[in-house]
């Protein structure tokens, strides 16, 4: 099981801050493909990956990152701190 977290407008489009997902996805991109196939709201949230960033176990990474051993994956828009 992986905790999948959503922040900012990704959270709003999906309508939840978090999902617990049972998955065999090898990479982040594979997980995204599984999520998009679930429901329309996921398809909408993940329609443009260039507008999204991803962290695996709280480290920024890329969509081709492997998920072996990962406990937490987070999707969010580009950050606006400061």
């Amino acid at each position: 099981m992986i905790d999948v977290l959503y922040f900012a407008w990704v959270r709003e489009r999906i309508g939840a801050p978090k999902d617990r997902v049972e998955t065999q996805a090898a990479t982040v991109a594979d997980l995204v493909a599984e999520l998009r196939a679930r429901e329309e709201r996921y398809e909408v949230a993940f329609s443009d990956l260039s507008a999204l960033r991803v962290a695996v176990d709280q480290e920024l990474t890329d969509f081709d990152a492997p998920l072996a051993g990962a406990r937490e994956v987070a999707f969010f828009p580009p950050m606006t701190g400061g």
């Binding site: 922040f7 900012a8 962290a55 987070a74 969010f76 580009p78 950050m79 606006t80 701190g81 400061g82």
Partner: peptide
């Protein structure tokens, strides 16, 4: 400041 802007996970609404 440059890194906090783009690499710290905050989102402003």
């Amino acid at each position: 400041m440059d890194y906090l802007k783009s690499r710290a996970p905050f989102w402003k609404k």
